[in-house]
Amino acid sequence: MRVKTRSVALMGVCVAFAMILSYVESFIPSPVYGVKIGLPNIVTVYLLYKCGAARAGAVSVVRVILTALLFGSVMSLIYSLAGAFLSLSVMVILKKTNLFSKVGVSIAGGVSHNIAQLAVAVAITGVGAVAYYLPTLVLGGVVAGIVVGIAGATVIKRV
């Protein structure tokens, strides 16, 4: 019982922290359209390694829905959910292979997050030429993944 209470409290703190990070990130100007660091993913990486895929997924979904309700729109909800779902799936699979470090897993997460969002953009606008942004988004995902991975690995080591 105590273990469960502790776990619920930890998940709550994680959701709150991830939401604060997404709010903070909205103040950081994006260098290129669509490229973001994805600060809340630090929490996702932390949970994935500390508490397992199920909890990382649950916290991601709750965070995405609450953030969209507070600061976003239906459109941003679809976007973020697609990104969160694909990136978490890819990270879970790569973590299981044990081939990559936390930074490598996070890079794959960042890139797949951007690919999912681009796919949603193509689906919503019905314009295939949006794929023009694929190279930019892949590189952006790599850089974001490195930043998030290093931050996540540091947090895992110290908390």
Partner: peptide, 27 residues
Amino acid sequence: MKKTVRNDIILVLILAVSALLLWLCVS
């Protein structure tokens, strides 16, 4: 060098090269 770190670097290189190729094709 640790094997995982080596794999990380390979992953980054593959992604960077494919992004470059895509960009070249497009431009």
